[in-house]
Simulated scan of single mutants.
Amino acid sequence: MTALPPLTIPDSELEERFVRSSGPGGQNVNKVASAVELRFDVRASASLPEAVRDRLLARRDRRMTEDGVLVIQAQRFRTQERNREDARERLQALIEACRVAPKKRIATKPTKGSQERRLGSKRERAQVKRERASRRWEREP
């Protein structure tokens, strides 16, 4: 299988907001906006192939808004620059995962042996239940 060439997204299609992080930061945590909120409009993106866009929009992902905007929040690190890199890496990984089309499932029939084993176990279970119902349980005083 050949590797796909990397897909690049221009900075003009990305929107970054910097907010105060709830993570590590020591005394700086209340002064520096080190967390990054990266927004990428999947529906309006001209750099994504149609198939990748459709797979991204079809994903059941809580980071995707109803308008088709993907929101990635990064606050794992103490510096704004490292959080920016982290958000972009996570976006790239998500897009790369959607670039490969899932394999179609080929429907198969159960084997004769598996059908017989299944029906045999059903018969055994039915027999156990029939025996329970027909027994007269006597109480001992």
Rank of each mutant, 00 (worst) to 15 (best):
Q80H: 11
S22V: 12
S34L: 08
V32G: 01
L57P: 10
S22A: 15
S12Y: 06
P5A: 11
R43W: 01
S45T: 03
R60K: 15
R130A: 13
L4Y: 06
A3E: 11
L119P: 03
R78I: 10
E15C: 11
T2A: 14
R105G: 02
D86G: 05
E15L: 12
L14S: 02
R76V: 00
S22L: 15
Q73D: 05
T2L: 15
L70F: 00
R59D: 02
D67S: 14
I9Y: 00
L57H: 06
W137F: 14
E138T: 10
G26M: 08
V69E: 00
W137V: 13
L7S: 07
S21A: 15
E16I: 04
P102W: 04
G68S: 09
R59H: 06
G26A: 14
R117V: 06
R118W: 08
P24K: 15
R123L: 10
G113R: 02
V128T: 03
E116Q: 09
D11Y: 05
G120Y: 02
S45V: 07
S34M: 08
R99F: 09
E16C: 08
K112Q: 08
K112Y: 05
R130T: 08
V29S: 11
K103T: 10
V29Q: 13
R62M: 03
S114Y: 03
A87Y: 00
E66Y: 06
D86K: 13
P24T: 09
S134Y: 05
R20V: 06
S21M: 14
V128N: 12
R136A: 09
K103P: 09
Q115L: 07
P10L: 08
P24A: 14
A97V: 03
R78G: 02
E131Q: 15
A33V: 05
F77L: 12
K109I: 08
L57M: 13
L48E: 01
K129V: 07
R117E: 03
Q80W: 10
R118N: 05
D41H: 10
Q115D: 03
K112M: 03
L7E: 03
R123C: 05
E13F: 01
G120F: 03
G26V: 08
G113S: 07
E140M: 04
Q80R: 15
R82E: 10
D54P: 02
A35S: 09
A107N: 11
R132S: 11
P141R: 09
Q115F: 06
R82D: 02
S121L: 14
T111I: 04
K122G: 05
D61I: 11
P141G: 10
R62I: 01
V36H: 00
Q75W: 01
A74K: 00
M64C: 04
P5G: 08
G25V: 02
Q127A: 13
R136L: 10
E15Q: 12
T2E: 15
R39S: 02
S134A: 12
T65V: 11
A58N: 12
